[in-house]
Nucleic acid binder design. Structure first.
Lengths: 147, 147
DNA sequence: GCGTTTGGCCTAAGATAATTAGGTTTCTTG
DNA sequence: CAAGAAACCTAATTATCTTAGGCCAAACGC
């Protein structure tokens, strides 16, 4: 499904998604039109879901990052999910196996702000929060190999 | 530190980091050269940490995504951190407050593969794994407002 | 086994976009 | 209030991207 060349494209774009077509083409030793066509197919097949940026949260005023495990009260799963979705401070949330139904990552300006967000969930769910002390591994790509 | 225009730039690029300079300039109603200069400063100040892509893990052969809480055995924190860093299946890891010293996200091809990765940690740490059943919120940006 | 089709690549030209240079306006500051 | 700096602009040059058309090799049908 994904050959060696597609793999190189993904690696190059993961490192810098704003690479010009020319640079990208040079990186994979193909012509510009062929590279365009490869890119188009990667997008079409959904391999590349999005081109995006990684923003420094502190520069946006978010001093604190936390991981929160959320256990909805019986019968409140749907409500809690809606609540989570509509909480803009939550930047990522997974529904997982186990007692902790949801695991969310959130960005807040202060401890007070964290408390505020958690309070908004308190009526519908039990939460356990962990403050991020350090990012040991910033979001990276898993090993990419031709399939 | 970040004005209304920078904010718009960040929002536009978060949605599509490959927007051409011309499109970006049109989006914020500035000329192309001014837009270039704004971008340059956002990069220089570290507000934009990286331009990257969001890849569909399934298309790379990763059928399963898991969140793992890792509690190193006494005195083994450093060793475990090294181990985590050198595990390519781990795509993200945070050092957090609380008993669970690390929280990692990993991509694996199968349950056997998951077991394999966890086994490699077993000698140095206790782990609790949760399989991701559904991404309720895919990585998004927190609210952006001028600061 | 051979002609045909398809997929993927190429080059080259025309169209589009990015950069550079130089000037204008506006805000800040001595 | 004048000087300087910061941020913007336009226009011309330079570079890049897209389009069109053709080549080649592997897969396919007869």
């Amino acid at each position: 499904m994904i050959d060696r060349i597609d793999c190189s494209i993904l690696k190059l774009l993961a490192r810098n998604a704003r690479l010009s077509l020319k640079e990208l083409a040079a990186g994979i030793s193909l012509s510009a039109p062929s590279t365009t066509e490869r890119l188009r197919r990667l997008e079409e097949r959904g391999t590349i879901r999005a081109y995006t940026i990684d923003v420094e949260p502190k520069q946006l005023g978010y001093a604190i990052q936390a991981l929160v495990r959320v256990r909805p009260l019986p019968g409140r799963v749907q409500i809690v999910q809606k609540l989570i979705e509509s909480t803009p401070e939550i930047v990522e949330c997974d529904k997982v196996t186990g007692d902790d139904c949801f695991v969310a990552r959130l960005f807040v300006r202060s401890m007070e702000h964290l408390d505020e967000v958690l309070e908004s969930l308190a009526a519908e769910a039990a939460t356990s929060s962990s403050i991020v002390k350090r990012q040991v591994i910033a979001r990276r790509q898993p090993p990419m190999a031709p399939i």
